Computed example of a mutant assay.
Amino acid sequence: MTKIIETIGLTKKYKKTSVVNQIDLSIEQGDIYGFLGPNGAGKTTTIRMLLGLIKPSAGQINIFGKDLAKNKINILKGIGSLVEYPSYYGNLTGFENLEAIRRLLRVQDKNRVMEILKTIGLTSAKDKLVKNYSLGMKQRLGIGVALLGSPKLLILDEPTNGLDPSGIQEIRELIKKLPHEFGITIMISSHLLSEVDQMANKVGIINQGQLIFQDRIQELRRKSAPKIHIRVNDPSMAKTILNNDGLDVTLTSDGEITINENDDSKVAYIANRLIRQQLAIYRIQEEKRSLEDIFLDITRRGENIS
């Protein structure tokens, strides 16, 4: 796959403090890349470097296969962005706002504004003053402005921040359709894993300026799969028996055996197998961890996870 964004050792220091510390981002064409981290983790600083708004202290940024430092103007022509809250002219309508930006960007296609209004779901509100828009409508308008120049890459910084559940769903559905309908690659920052989980196919987690996880979202789901803990009278023997049966079993420090399985038939087999070997089973317990639990755990520990 073609890499749309690649950073190598990207670093930003203020005085002696590293706000972003040697991160290597990798975003491929067609990705919806969820850039996650607690508030103050370095998300917005990273995004501002990607957009050429601030200069890195060290490292390299390649976008569309070109060095941003050497091809800034040409690269930025292919990027649409919404950083923090959108700016707009409150006393103009939605249509007039987009038309003004179309002229500033010198977009030749005069039908582009109506196309964007349809894409962002604001056709019926095109003649309404923007100051009377809801927050969700303003966010959609901001994304519409970012789309006016037909970008290949869309970078959104916390686009659902402050929205009610209805507004969040509207933005989520809009973002999800853009890669499929228009071939746009999207990078979206958030501090909510549960929200990104419903949009992204790839996730990068930043904490205290360091990228501690980057992979397909399925890998995080795999880490959140339920586990079974079994307490028996002879854990070492139980582990040996089940390992010999080809089961992935580990022994915890407190004397429990842990199995990365939660299939009912497999658990029943394990219990029956141990009983037939004259082992006493004291407890069988399922441990469930949500993706949010995983996210909070790894950001709390601040360790790289594989």
Rank of each mutant, 00 (worst) to 15 (best):
T7K: 03
T7W: 10
T11E: 04
S26W: 11
Y33G: 00
K43N: 10
R48V: 11
R48I: 07
L53R: 08
G65L: 10
A69S: 14
I73K: 14
N74H: 13
L76A: 08
S81I: 02
P86W: 12
G94P: 01
R103A: 09
R103G: 03
Q108L: 10
D109C: 10
I116M: 08
L117H: 07
T119R: 09
I120C: 07
G121E: 12
K126R: 13
D127H: 13
V130N: 01
Q139T: 10
R140H: 06
G142R: 01
I155Y: 04
T160L: 02
N161R: 08
R172P: 00
K176P: 01
L178Y: 05
F182N: 10
G183S: 08
G183M: 07
I184W: 02
L192H: 14
L193V: 06
V196L: 09
M199L: 04
V203P: 00
I206L: 11
I206G: 00
Q210H: 13
F213T: 01
D215T: 08
L220I: 13
K223I: 06
A225C: 04
P226G: 10
I228P: 00
V232S: 03
D245S: 15
G246I: 06
S253E: 14
E256C: 06
E261S: 14
N262V: 01
S265G: 08
I270D: 00
A271W: 01
N272A: 15
R273V: 12
Q277R: 15
Q277L: 09
L279A: 15
I284T: 05
Q285C: 03
Q285L: 04
E287H: 12
K288L: 08
S290I: 13
S290V: 11
E292H: 15
I298Y: 07
